[in-house]
């Protein structure tokens, strides 16, 4: 009951957005750490993908932990977006008539683009899952292998195939830029919303948010960039694959 009445207030909703945002932020850091394994060679990242499915397998079964994580993330994404929509509705009501030309002074570009960058990210996430997780959309062929009787994607190979196409890499890098500015504002904002910010720390927090979000941008973008430019090598049997599919 108390939680519901808390959620009904504007601040309650902001806190929900902030907390779910933090969870998603943390997930992105892990996601990026996993991605960077491509630089250790094709075998390593595929092994990592397998590992994700076998963590605590005796307790949770094949990919059990992965599914739990996915469920948590889904809840966070839904809560984040639904709450943001409710807030936008409230804010529209609070300012029914706009100024002839509102001269914004203090807000950052990142803050003003929160809704737009958020929308881009949402569309991207859907496409990204359809592409690399389920293989439903295939700008480049997505390959699956059998492990312990379960089907799973071949990570390195798929990445290489997709990002060798310049426009796929470009779209990914563009979206990563959107995520970067979304997280710059979000990364500082959640500290302010949760009341952790203050005058002495503000500068530090801003720098922190910038470093973190820019770090994520660099980390994430490096993968498509390096496949596209050929810095990351093709898988060993790459030539064979290509001839197979043709």
């Amino acid at each position: 009951m108390r939680v519901m009445s808390f959620y009904r207030t504007a601040i309650g909703k902001k806190v929900v957005v902030a907390v779910t945002g933090v969870v998603l932020f943390l997930f992105l850091i892990l996601h990026m750490a996993g991605n960077l394994k491509v630089f250790a060679g094709p075998g390593v990242i595929d092994e990592y993908a397998l590992h994700l499915r076998t963590i605590m397998e005796p307790i949770f079964g094949w990919a059990g932990v992965l599914w739990i994580t996915r469920a948590v993330l889904l809840v966070c994404v839904v809560a984040h977006i639904v709450t943001v929509f409710l807030l936008i509705k409230q804010n529209k009501r609070a300012r029914p008539q706009r100024y002839r030309r509102h001269h914004l002074q203090a807000s950052t570009i990142a803050a003003r683009l929160m809704q737009a960058s958020g929308a881009v990210i949402l569309i991207f996430v859907v496409l990204h899952i359809l592409q690399f997780t389920t293989g439903d959309i295939q700008p480049a062929p997505v390959l699956f292998v059998e492990e312990d009787g379960h089907e799973m994607a071949e990570v390195y190979r798929n990445l290489h195939a997709a990002f060798s196409m310049w426009w796929v890499a470009a779209i990914y890098i563009f979206v990563m830029a959107c995520i970067c500015i979304h997280l710059y504002h979000g990364g500082w904002s959640f500290l302010q919303t949760l009341g952790l910010d203050n005058q002495d720390r503000n500068r530090g927090f801003r720098i922190w948010a910038w470093l973190l979000s820019f770090g994520l941008f660099v980390g994430f973008s490096s993968v498509p960039f390096c496949f596209w430019t050929g810095i990351l090598p093709a898988p060993a049997d790459h030539a064979a694959d290509v001839s197979e599919t043709h």
């Binding site: 009904r8 207030t9 504007a10 601040i11 909703k13 902001k14 807030l87 409230q90 804010n91 009501r93 609070a94 300012r95 914004l104 002074q105 203090a106 807000s107 803050a111 003003r112 929160m114 504002h185 500082w188 904002s189 302010q192 919303t193």
Partner: peptide, 16 residues
């Protein structure tokens, strides 16, 4: 909230 004010998105325009 009851007065119909909006919610903060940390623009910091107010402070300025």
């Amino acid at each position: 909230d009851a007065e119909g004010f909006g919610a903060c998105t940390n623009y910091a325009e107010c402070q300025d």
